[in-house]
């Protein structure tokens, strides 16, 4: 075994810059994904059947096909279908948001159902319309209940984000491969980004635990 981290050192800043790309990508995907997931969850509990069917169908599509296929479809088929030259990062965020919406909508739906129905009735009895009732009364309580699950979903997003290296986004993973290509060293750059992913995931997990404990104390 001959490891040569020394040769990697000049490329280290290049690799480290990937942290920002990966984090930004994950954050955007989670943000759009959970927003869309919330809307989907509202469709799923709607009293209008076609809306429910649509939401269920949407979810089954994104859960029933490989993420990497969805990514390739969005990236390569968008220019062909609508003539828009989509950038890798746009395609990545779009795919991940759509995909994450499908998964998180289930979690959010469960969170909404777990909120005591008395909360809804109290809001209605005060004459509060549907939107403010959802935004101010029901969803805050639902999100509080499912925060740990959403953090887990974000962690999954962070790890899966490495997939966007396949369409050329210069994230952590892709940067490791670039460095490998330049130096003909594979193990070293890959192990470096591996450690970086691990540290980020552990950090998120820790933060989630602290948050959860603090919230548990507050009620």
């Amino acid at each position: 075994m001959n490891l040569d981290f020394g040769q990697i050192i000049p490329s280290l800043p290049f690799i480290l810059n990937g942290i920002v790309v990966t984090l930004k990508f994950t954050l955007l995907s989670a943000l759009f994904g959970f927003t869309l997931g919330t809307l989907l969850s509202l469709l799923k509990i709607s009293s209008i059947k076609p809306l429910r069917w649509f939401a269920e169908f949407y979810t089954s599509i994104f859960r029933g096909t490989p993420l990497i296929l969805q990514l390739a479809l969005v990236y390569f088929a968008t220019p062909q279908l609508i003539g828009y030259k989509i950038s890798p990062i746009e395609a990545g965020v779009l795919t991940f948001a759509l995909n994450s919406a499908a998964y998180s909508s289930e979690t959010i739906r469960a969170g909404i159902m777990a909120v005591d129905k008395g909360q809804r009735e109290a809001s209605m009895s005060l004459g509060v319309p549907y939107r403010p009732m959802m935004l101010d009364i029901i969803l805050p309580q639902a999100f509080k209940n499912i925060l740990p699950a959403l953090v887990n979903e974000s962690i999954a997003l962070l790890k899966d984000s490495a997939l966007v290296s396949t369409i050329g986004v210069l994230d952590l993973m892709r940067r490791a491969q670039v460095v490998a290509g330049q130096t003909f060293l594979y193990f070293e750059p890959l192990i470096i980004v591996g450690v970086i992913y691990y540290v980020m995931v552990m950090g998120l997990t820790q933060a989630a635990q602290v948050l959860e404990r603090r919230m548990r104390r507050s009620d």
């Binding site: 005591d116 008395g118 909360q119 109290a122 005060l126 004459g127 319309p129 403010p132 101010d136 509080k144």
Partner: peptide, 30 residues
């Protein structure tokens, strides 16, 4: 509903709002 108040067996206060927040929410919003 704005004109007909209701009090429930299980109170149904908003747990994430203070007492003041519970009382001012609907008058402000609605």
């Amino acid at each position: 509903r704005q004109n007909v108040g209701m009090v429930f067996q299980h109170f149904n206060l908003f747990p994430h709002k203070t007492v003041m927040g519970n009382l001012t929410y609907a008058p402000m919003k609605v």
